[in-house]
């Protein structure tokens, strides 16, 4: 079963949330990466049927994501910290199981199983109001799993969880993926996704700017020419040095700003630091002018550092 987006566009009034997105997400773990405001949460809300696309279709299997039928197959862990605070973690998950129509006995059994799976058995009797952020994240995950859906949408599920906890949650997600479930995990931290999944969707400004395995995305970016703006002092000296470099296709100088076109961005970013240090050039700003490339590089660079 697939989660599919077909030419999906979502407007919030005059503001565009996601822009003509088409993709199919199948079994296994897929990471959804992007900076804050990139459109990840909008995509998650569209997939969970909280929002309807302005154009296009979002389908869970054969059902429209907005429909009640789709909700049977969906487990959603939202990126918010709100619960019925007067309930214990166990009561909360049990209530969510009951809202799926399970009998008392079945709901109790499923609650116990899923609470054990997320490692909360000994702490599930604590009131939600007294739970730490990490415990609340686990309870959110438990309520998403309690009806055994084939599609899991997890919006920033690892934020606030300690490294040991992350390892446990990751192992749980690997087990679920091995069972054939489709899992979409959003995060703005590359390392989190790198540990979880090799398949990523990268978003920037409402668009998917790259998709595939992490290695494929990196290769794609290495092969892709990029225009970079550099504000430096002395600009002309830096322009002369860059012009000698074979990976630089062209350099334009305007006052203190250089517009550089490079055929190998990764090598370029690797070498420019060394170059400016060697020649005592002061770089005030260094910015890729291609929005998509900027986002990808931002992530790739952060992920490597």
């Amino acid at each position: 079963m697939l989660l599919s987006f077909e030419h999906v566009t979502k407007f919030y009034g005059a503001v565009i949330g996601v822009n003509d997105i088409s993709c199919r997400i199948g079994p296994g773990i897929t990471g959804l990466l992007g900076a804050n405001g990139a459109g990840k949460s909008t995509l998650m809300k569209l997939a969970s049927g909280q929002l309807r696309p302005t154009q296009g279709h979002v389908r869970i299997g054969e059902h429209d994501a907005w429909s009640t039928a789709a909700k049977h197959h969906l487990g959603y862990s939202p990126d918010l910290n709100s619960f019925y605070e007067e309930m214990t973690g166990r009561e909360f998950v049990y209530t969510m199981a009951r809202l799926h129509g399970f009998s008392r006995v079945e709901a109790r059994q499923r609650t116990a199983d899923v609470i054990e799976e997320v490692g909360m058995t000994d702490r599930a009797g604590r009131r939600m109001a007294g739970c730490s952020h990490g415990m609340r994240q686990r309870i959110k995950l438990a309520q998403a799993l309690v009806h055994d859906p084939w599609l899991l949408l997890l919006d920033e599920p690892l934020s606030g969880i300690d490294p040991g906890g992350r390892r446990e949650i990751n192992e749980l997600l690997f087990r679920l993926a091995a069972q054939g479930k489709t899992i979409l995990v959003s995060s703005h931290i590359l390392v989190e996704i790198e540990q979880l999944s090799n398949s990523i969707l990268m978003m920037s400004r409402g668009r998917i700017i790259a998709s595939g395995t992490l290695a494929e995305v990196r290769n794609l970016m290495q092969m892709r020419p990029m225009v970079v703006e550099i504000v430096a002092e002395p600009a002309r000296r830096l322009a002369a040095l860059l012009a000698e470099n074979p990976i630089v296709q062209s350099v334009e100088v305007r006052d203190h700003a250089l517009t550089v076109r490079t055929r190998n961005p990764q090598q370029f970013f690797g070498e420019i630091g060394e170059l400016v240090c060697q020649h005592g050039i002061e770089v005030r700003r260094l910015q890729p002018l291609d929005a998509g490339a900027e986002a990808v590089f931002d992530y790739l660079q952060k992920g490597r550092s």
């Binding site: 049927g49 039928a69 049977h72 959603y76 939202p78 709100s82 799926h100 129509g101 309520q143």
Partner: peptide, 15 residues
């Protein structure tokens, strides 16, 4: 207002 409505909207109960 508490934003717990999201937990109800993703359940298989018609709105």
């Amino acid at each position: 207002e508490d934003r717990t409505l999201v937990f109800l909207l993703v359940r298989p109960i018609p709105r």
